[in-house]
Structures are given as structure tokens and as C-alpha cells.
Design a protein around this nucleic acid. Structure first.
Lengths: 130, 130
DNA sequence: CACTTGCTTGAAGCGCGCTTGAACTCCAAA
DNA sequence: TTTGGAGTTCAAGCGCGCTTCAAGCAAGTG
């Protein structure tokens, strides 16, 4: 049988075995078949892993990924259902962008101010707040 | 005496007492004077708290803030020493921005693809990687 | 047979900015 | 007096995406 052990899958894909077991425990990949208690995988597992890697890189959390792959057995096409999730995530990323911009603005204040001491800085802040 | 208890400071500034104790334990604010074992503060404490709040909002970690306030007793002006730290943080924020942009690009792929199933998505990904 | 290697499970650890809890002290009001 | 509220310290908890550890089992090799 050309089935792969968890170690082989992990090595080929470039993750640790612990990660794969974790994905299984979290329901991101189907339960592997067992032989003598050990997990064995068919080539299709890589499709799942590719999706997980993609989704993590795109900023999805484990729970969101679970939601996306759980729906795989449903009638509608994955692409359709994923779009809604992706759109929400895009909004979230935009919020994070705005936060980063806000931080940059603050930092530029700090760079501009040649503060002689804490009290001076605090007065400046209080003025800015008001 | 018009000194403030930790509860009064916390309420006026809008944080919990536990946060103030934590800042003290981490060396972000000077050790408060004690009366019968309890902390009492002068008005100057707010300058410190304002700086901490500002720095946290700007994305600094506790350790970085400690570095910034520890240097307060040094000869050079705070503004001067802070600038170097702020510049490094600005670079870090730019890296984070780039990461966010990368995530957005990935998400847009997902939105564009009307994937009929996982295998289709995986093939697409493999092609994109190559 | 022993030994090694890779696997199994469940539980605990990580970093970080606090919060929460347990067990205690101190002071003021009823 | 007793009750309550606010303070003290130290230790543990949180979330999250795994990793690491402990203790043991299965299969192949000498």
C-alpha cells in the first residue's frame, strides 16, 4: 500500500507531526484511518493541508478554518460559501490596517516631539486629547 | 495629605488597580511610597501612566516601555533617546503592514476562485506556488 | 531476544498584558 | 464590636496554535 505514515506526510509537507495531530483533533482534517493504532494517509490529505496552510497565511483562525472545511459536505460549492467568510476577513484586515495607521501616527508624534521630560510629554498628550 | 490611593488613581485614570500594581512590578512606574503597607501616589504618577498608555497604543511592548522609562534618569533628553526606539518600531509597523497586504492578496484569490472542491483549490495553489 | 525508531495518548508549556483568586491586613462606619 | 470595603502578596489563569513531555506500544533489525 502506498499510504503514508504521519511522519512521511509531515516531512513532505514541511510541518511537524504534532501539527497534523493537532489539526485532526481540531477537526480541520478528517480522522485518518488507523492500522495497528497508527494513522495512515492517502494523497488527498495534501489538498486539506494546502488549504489549511493557505487559510492560516491569509489570517484565518483555527475555528474559522474549521467552519470552512466542515461545510465541505454541504450542497453549495465551497467557493461560494468561502466568499462570505473571506469578505468578512477582508473587513477585519482593513480594521487592522487602520489600527496600524493609528499607531504610526502616534509614533510620528513621538518622533517629532523633542520632549525634555515626562511631564512635558504628558502635557502635550493632554492637550492633544482635549 | 492629598495623596491618592491606588483605587483613586485607577478610577481617575480608567484602569484597574491590578494594572497599576503590574506596572510597578514590571518597573514601568516608580515604586509608590507606602503607608501602613499601602501604596500612595502624588499627582505626578499620571504623567507616567499617560506615557504608558500612549506607548501601548503605539504598539510598544512592556519590555520596550521599560527600556524607555528606565533611561529617564540618564543625561540625554528622553525625546532624543525615544526617537531611535520609535524609528525601529516604525519599521516594524511597516513590516506588519506588508504582512497585512499579503493576507489581503491571498484573500482576494479566494474570493475570485469559484472553487468546486478542495482538490481544485489545491491544484490552483500548487500552480501559483510554482 | 534486545534495541531502535517512530508512533500513540493526554497533559502541560509558551508569550504577554494583564486579571483573578486565595488568604490576609488595615481602617472607618454602624 | 462587627461588618464592610479597600488594600496587600503570591500564584495561577486566559487565548491560541501549536510544541513538548511522559509513558508506553508496534514493527523492523541484529
Amino acid at each position: 500500500m502506498s499510504d503514508l505514515s504521519i511522519g512521511q506526510v509531515a516531512q513532505r509537507f514541511g510541518v511537524r507531526t504534532s501539527a497534523i495531530r493537532y489539526y485532526e483533533s481540531e477537526g480541520l482534517i478528517p480522522k485518518a484511518m488507523r492500522r495497528a493504532g497508527r494513522r495512515f494517509y492517502e494523497a488527498g490529505i495534501f489538498d486539506h493541508l494546502i488549504f489549511i496552510r493557505f487559510a492560516l497565511r491569509a489570517g484565518f483562525h483555527i475555528g474559522e478554518i474549521r467552519t470552512m472545511v466542515r461545510g465541505l459536505s454541504s450542497a453549495t460549492k465551497p467557493g461560494e460559501r468561502w466568499r462570505a467568510v473571506a469578505d468578512k476577513k477582508l473587513e477585519e484586515l482593513d480594521r487592522q490596517m487602520a489600527e496600524l495607521q493609528a499607531k504610526k501616527r502616534l509614533l510620528q508624534q513621538l518622533v517629532k516631539c523633542h520632549c525634555p521630560d515626562l511631564a512635558h510629554f504628558a502635557r502635550m498628550q493632554r492637550k492633544a486629547e482635549a
